[in-house]
């Protein structure tokens, strides 16, 4: 499943999608960046309520397939532009992380 397919199936709000064909292979939920850095796997969808620019660097380095901001969180100013530049897909969902995670898991 590509990130674009996932976003459509889950009716996510697309913030930016510079790499729509990226394959989703798993998921990770977390807001503490060092946990995400050490634990998230390449190809994971990362669910978080963190909205700052550091999310883009962590997503790039951990090589996650996409970031979903949960709880209706929107990225801080400048984050979308940075993500476009770094090829990081960003989405948002009004639901909480457990609910979104369960839906992602059901699709995998």
């Amino acid at each position: 499943m590509t990130v674009h397919e996932m976003a459509e199936k889950l009716s996510l709000q697309t913030i930016c999608e510079p790499d729509p064909d990226r394959e989703v292979t798993g998921g990770y939920t977390g807001d503490l960046l060092s946990w995400v850095m050490g634990r998230a796997q390449s190809g994971d969808v990362w669910l978080t309520i963190m909205s700052n620019q550091n999310v883009v660097a962590v997503a790039t380095l951990a090589d996650t397939a996409a970031v979903i901001f949960t709880e209706g969180v929107q990225p801080d100013a400048g984050v979308r532009e940075l993500a476009e530049k770094k090829d990081v897909n960003l989405y948002s969902s009004p639901d909480h992380s457990f609910a979104v995670g369960a839906k992602v898991a059901a699709l995998l």
Partner: peptide, 12 residues
């Protein structure tokens, strides 16, 4: 508040 400070950096 920015997401740092879990105390996992050096172990990572």
């Amino acid at each position: 508040n920015m997401g740092f400070g879990a105390g996992m950096g050096l172990p990572n």
